[in-house]
């Protein structure tokens, strides 16, 4: 069957990607490194999403967790929550999953260049923001001061252990971390993510900020940022919704007049702060 339309692309038809590496990060999260089956380079921006799927099960929206500065492959993290994610998490290296995308609007990188950057990630919120963290680390000269705050519920839920180990000792990033519930081995900070702001005396009001985490986190972090006089125009939030189609049609991710999948998932805080259902 073929289509006779001048608009040839079928936005619902995915492409195959081969899993090069699949590693279980925590009890619930699996980290995939992928490559398009047709050997084409997957071109995207930090913060963009894909619809990852498996025929017979369905598709789910996922933020890319690798940076486009890394050539030859891209990375996704799947958390087991439902039917599709369970099926995806069972996949192994060499298996195929389907990819539609990249979709939506990512972080406006050019606005971050030449500025101080602060990224605040809670739990699984580290996955999509890692695309930007790695971008900055790979092109470190283009950015000024870089702070990264990461909070997880417990040490068992820390993601990307190798990255964390590197960030802890790297001079390229001022990395602060905390857990809500420590175990016996945990020697770091304890408390919710906002407690990390206690160690930050000063932030340049022009700092560009990214926030991504559980819904409850946004309001508290934004309240902290107000203390440093950071403009709402310079705060970017990465939102999560049930994006079914990923192309601004199905309506599931609509917040007032915005479609998270198409107008986001990254939004400038000043653009959405008055949308009641946003955060």
């Amino acid at each position: 069957m073929s289509c006779s339309s001048n608009h040839d692309k079928n936005i619902f038809l995915p492409k195959n990607a081969i899993i090069r590496k699949a590693s279980q990060m925590t009890a619930f999260e699996t980290h995939f490194t992928l490559k398009m089956e047709d050997e084409s380079e997957f071109i995207y921006e930090p913060g963009q999403i894909v619809e990852a799927g498996l025929f017979g099960y369905g598709e789910i929206p996922l933020g890319l967790s690798s940076s486009p500065t890394q050539q030859g492959s891209f990375e996704l993290v799947v958390r087991e929550v439902g039917k599709v994610s369970k099926a995806l998490c069972a996949l192994k290296a060499g298996d195929t999953m389907t990819i539609r995308g990249p979709l939506g609007k990512g972080f406006p990188v050019s606005e971050f260049v030449g500025q101080d950057v602060l990224i605040v990630a809670g739990g699984i919120g580290l996955c999509p923001t890692r695309s930007m963290i790695r971008y900055i680390m790979d092109r470190r000269d283009e950015f000024k001061d870089f702070k990264l705050l990461f909070g997880a519920r417990s040490p068992d839920e820390l993601l990307f252990e190798d990255d964390l180990a590197y960030w802890r000792c790297s001079s390229d990033v001022n990395y602060l971390e905390t857990v809500d519930k420590p175990n016996d081995r945990w020697k770091g900070n304890i408390g919710v993510i906002t407690t990390l702001f206690e160690g930050i005396d000063h932030l340049d009001p022009a700092t560009r900020v990214i926030i991504c985490g559980p819904p409850i986190m946004y309001k508290f972090v934004i309240a902290q940022l107000a203390k440093y006089n950071i403009s709402e125009h310079h705060i970017f939030v990465d939102l999560e919704r049930r994006m079914k189609c990923g192309v601004g049609k199905c309506g599931h991710c609509q917040i007032n007049d915005k479609y998270v999948c198409m107008d986001g998932p990254v939004f400038r805080y000043s653009d959405i702060k008055d949308l009641e259902e946003a955060i």
Binding site: C3, I11, F12
Partner: peptide, 17 residues
């Protein structure tokens, strides 16, 4: 228009056409 703008919905428009 809804099925045309931003992302063209080929299923809708092939039937429509």
């Amino acid at each position: 228009w809804i099925h045309e703008e931003s992302n063209f919905d080929i299923y809708y428009h092939s039937n429509r056409k």
